[in-house]
Structures are given as structure tokens and as C-alpha cells.
């Protein structure tokens, strides 16, 4: 990382040695539309996909913790976790084939039902389709983390709540969700960082979709700058910038979290 900062302060011309250019790379980056459109895209992605995924993960973590699933809970947990063991490339390839209108079995089903065609890799939908892949990959992993956190919290609290006449929803609302908070906090931060680093899934989908271009996400754009444009110094500057944005996003999340806690403390 430190080395990237160092590199980002230079420029390498086609002929001649690397020369010091100060903050010029960063000044260029600030007016680089391709870069910022990617940042906006992953921000939109993160605001919708991360809460949705964590909500599903939390729902199932609580369901399993309270043993509401009577049969096959162990097997179901394993199935949910499976995608985490699968390389992102293969996950994206499988979903790519399931999406692509020419091969898609979903498309066949929809057409047979007379519901018309949906192009899952079309311009407006492809971001949601990527969201589905990422959710599919990580929801079980997050669920297991939250589940382990719930399992390792004291059970006596539930007993006490039950004695006090708490019903299922009360236990979920006042015992389980607060207990899962530390787990949610950690999984949220990791998901935010992961979202800003989005690369493999859109990169693989770009061979199925014309909507995924060479500046679709910040990392894809950096990859393009480094390899197609051969501008390593500018790529270094952009990667430093992504690091800064990540820190800022995490700080904003922490700030919101603290604000909410404080408000809860007063009321």
C-alpha cells in the first residue's frame, strides 16, 4: 500500500525514466468520469445489496438459533454455506449461463408461462443480477458468523424472557437482534469493503453482457488503466484513492452506528 502511494506520485513516459509529478495523478483522477461512475455504481450496489444480504443472513441465523427448523437444520446450514467454498469465477460463470438469454432456463420458463422475456444481463438489470450472484456467494457465510455469535451468547437470557411471558417475536426483537449486533457490525464492515473491491463477478459477466464495460467498477477500471493503457502510476493513484474511499465509507458507517446508539441511549 505504501509502495502504491510512492508510485502514484510519479509518471512513466513512453521514453525515458520515471519522473516525479507530485499530486498530478490525483488531480487527474478527480476529474476522471470513468472512475467516478464506477464508484457511484458500487455505492448504489452496496446500499441495496449489503443490507438485503445481511437481513436474509440474520433471519436464518435467528431461525436456526431458536431451532425453528425441526428437520434437516444441519444439512440446510451446510447447503447455505456451500457457495463460499466455490471460486467466484465458477459462481459467476454458472450464473452467467443461467442469465444469458440464449441459454437461460429461467428465460425458457418465463416464455413458456407467457410472461415474455427478461434479459438478466441487459443494461438496467445486470447490476441487480450481479447483486444476486454476490448474495448467493456470501449469504451463507454471513449467516454462519451471525449464527455462531448467537449460539455463543448466554441462553439464560431467553429463559428469563420466557419466564417474563415473552413470545416468539419479543425474543427475536429484544433478545436475539441485540445479541447479533456485534456480528452484524463486523459482517457489515467486511461487506462494505468487499463491495468497493467488486471485480471478479462483473469481469466474468462482461463476456455475457455488453452492459458491463471496462470502467464498470473501480477495480475493473484500475485493471484497464494498468493493462490496456499501460499506466501503472495512474493505476497506483486510483488504487490509493479506492483505499481512501473505503476508509471514508467505513468511517461513515461507524459514525451512523454511533449516532444511532447514542439516540437509543437517550430515549
Amino acid at each position: 500500500m505504501l509502495y502504491s502511494i510512492y508510485l502514484s506520485l510519479f509518471a512513466t513516459p513512453l521514453i525515458g525514466p520515471r519522473k516525479f509529478v507530485g499530486l498530478q495523478n490525483f488531480i487527474n483522477a478527480f476529474s476522471d468520469q470513468s472512475f467516478w461512475s464506477g464508484v457511484e455504481r458500487v455505492a448504489l450496489f452496496g446500499i441495496i445489496q449489503v443490507p438485503l444480504m445481511l437481513l436474509i443472513a440474520l433471519f436464518f441465523a435467528i431461525v436456526f438459533d431458536l431451532e425453528l427448523v425441526r428437520r434437516g437444520a444441519g444439512i440446510l446450514r451446510l447447503i447455505y454455506f456451500l457457495p463460499y467454498a466455490i471460486p467466484g469465477v465458477i459462481s459467476a460463470l454458472m450464473w452467467g449461463y443461467l442469465y444469458e438469454p440464449r441459454y437461460s432456463p429461467f428465460d425458457t420458463i418465463l416464455t413458456q408461462l407467457g410472461l415474455g422475456n427478461v434479459n438478466f444481463v441487459g443494461g438496467n438489470i445486470v447490476l441487480a443480477s450481479i447483486g444476486n450472484i454476490v448474495t448467493w456467494e456470501y449469504v451463507g457465510y454471513n449467516m454462519i458468523i451471525l449464527y455462531v455469535v448467537l449460539r455463543s451468547s448466554p441462553r439464560e437470557l431467553i429463559d428469563a424472557a420466557v419466564v417474563d411471558g415473552a413470545k416468539l417475536w419479543d425474543i427475536v426483537r429484544y433478545v436475539k437482534i441485540p445479541m447479533a449486533r456485534i456480528g452484524l457490525f463486523l459482517t457489515a464492515i467486511l461487506s462494505i469493503i468487499g463491495t468497493l473491491q467488486l471485480f471478479t463477478e462483473p469481469e466474468i459477466l462482461s463476456s455475457f453482457s455488453t452492459a458491463v464495460n471496462t470502467s464498470y467498477t473501480p477495480n475493473i477500471y484500475i485493471y484497464t488503466v494498468a493493462f490496456t493503457n499501460n499506466n501503472l502510476n495512474y493505476a497506483a493513484a486510483l488504487s490509493v484513492l479506492v483505499g481512501v474511499i473505503t476508509v471514508v465509507a467505513t468511517a461513515v458507517f461507524l459514525g451512523l452506528n454511533r449516532l444511532r446508539q447514542r439516540r437509543a441511549g437517550i430515549s
Binding site: L76, Y80, S91, W136, V162, K167
Partner: peptide
């Protein structure tokens, strides 16, 4: 918990449905 049967059925159904979703690819 005083859980009602339809609620538990729904939860079990959702859990299995989600398992199917994971297994599709």
C-alpha cells in the same frame, strides 16, 4: 414461545426454498 403453527410452517418453507435457490446453479 407461544409460536403459532402457520408461522413455523412458513419459516420452514422459506428455509427449504432458500436451500433450493442455493442449489439451483
Amino acid at each position: 414461545y407461544g409460536a403459532r403453527r402457520p408461522v413455523i410452517w412458513l419459516v420452514n418453507f422459506l428455509a427449504v426454498l432458500f436451500g433450493v435457490y442455493i442449489l439451483i446453479p
